[in-house]
């Protein structure tokens, strides 16, 4: 479980708080979607889950974040990486090895897993994302979708309980986005906690998360099932978010039809 207890954070040199008074729980076996306009604190939230904040990004933090009972201020990022795997937007920010297999083994090696564990882990994570066949290839020879899956494998190989992804669909084509949905669902069904930050609301609708969280200006606007959140058209628009087309259409149609029937009556 990842627990946020009344957490606020202000980046050094910044005037406003990136997140304010956040109290939240994230459990395993569930997919959470986090949406919000630019500057709402989505990325900050992710960085607080694996200790990048406060260890790497300096600033003023209030409250605490507990990962499986461990305070993120007291554990190192390397230790937290075994619990929370953070997948960034640009896979090219991490590749430096000669082969896919070597790349995926970097994480486990850095956190001190032993050789047997590493071997098993690498195999498992590459099979999970469907890249085992390509394990001898150079990371840069992969397609965009394959690179994205490799970046997820690099984090999975540390066997974290939670996987958090920052805008995973940016620049991906339809096939890749579909395979991402099935991968995340599979991981959830295997008992992992999945947290996805995205502005691709159509894709999120298809992913059908267990819970959707709306952030705006550092605070939680609302949290609930996809149906609850997506049908609150006014709420979404107020937070500068576009509702999924199907919800928008249903809403508009319902209103048009009710106008018609009112006109008929």
């Amino acid at each position: 479980m990842i627990k946020f207890e009344d957490v606020s954070f202000r980046y050094e040199g910044s005037n406003g708080f990136a997140v304010k008074g956040i109290s939240l729980d994230f459990g395993v076996g569930r997919i959470y979607g986090v949406i919000g306009p630019n500057g709402s604190g989505k990325s900050t939230l992710l960085r607080m889950m694996n200790g990048l904040i406060p260890h790497f990004y300096r600033g003023e933090m209030a409250g605490r974040v507990l990962v499986d009972g461990v305070d993120t201020r007291e554990a190192s990022v390397a230790q937290l990486a075994r619990k929370v795997g953070l997948v960034f937007q640009n896979p090219e920010h991490m590749f430096f090895s000669e082969s896919v297999e070597e790349e995926v083994s970097f994480g486990p090696r850095s956190v001190g897993m032993d050789e047997d564990e590493i071997r098993d882990s690498v195999r498992w994570s590459l099979e999970e994302v469907g890249l085992w066949e390509l394990r001898g290839r150079s990371p840069w020879s992969l397609s965009g979708g394959e690179m994205k899956r490799l970046s997820i494998a690099c984090v999975l190989s540390m066997r974290p309980t939670f996987v958090a992804l920052d805008e995973p669909t940016v620049g991906q084509d339809a096939i890749s986005k579909d395979s991402l949905i099935s991968l995340l669902r599979r991981l959830r069904d295997e008992g992992k906690g999945i947290i996805v930050v995205t502005h691709d609301i159509e894709w999120l609708e298809e992913l059908d998360p267990d819970e959707v969280l709306v952030l705006n200006r550092g605070s939680i606007y609302g949290m609930g099932s996809p149906e609850d959140i997506f049908s609150d058209i006014r709420g979404l628009v107020m937070n500068q978010l576009m509702p999924p087309a199907s919800y928008l259409i249903e809403n508009l149609l319902r209103r048009c039809l009710s106008v018609r029937s009112a006109g008929d009556a």
Binding site: L52, V77, A78, A81, L86, H93, M94, S110, C154
Partner: peptide
């Protein structure tokens, strides 16, 4: 900065 953050998140120090 992003590279350092990415690698730190993989346990790199």
């Amino acid at each position: 900065m992003n590279i350092i953050a990415s690698q730190a998140s993989r346990g790199h120090e």
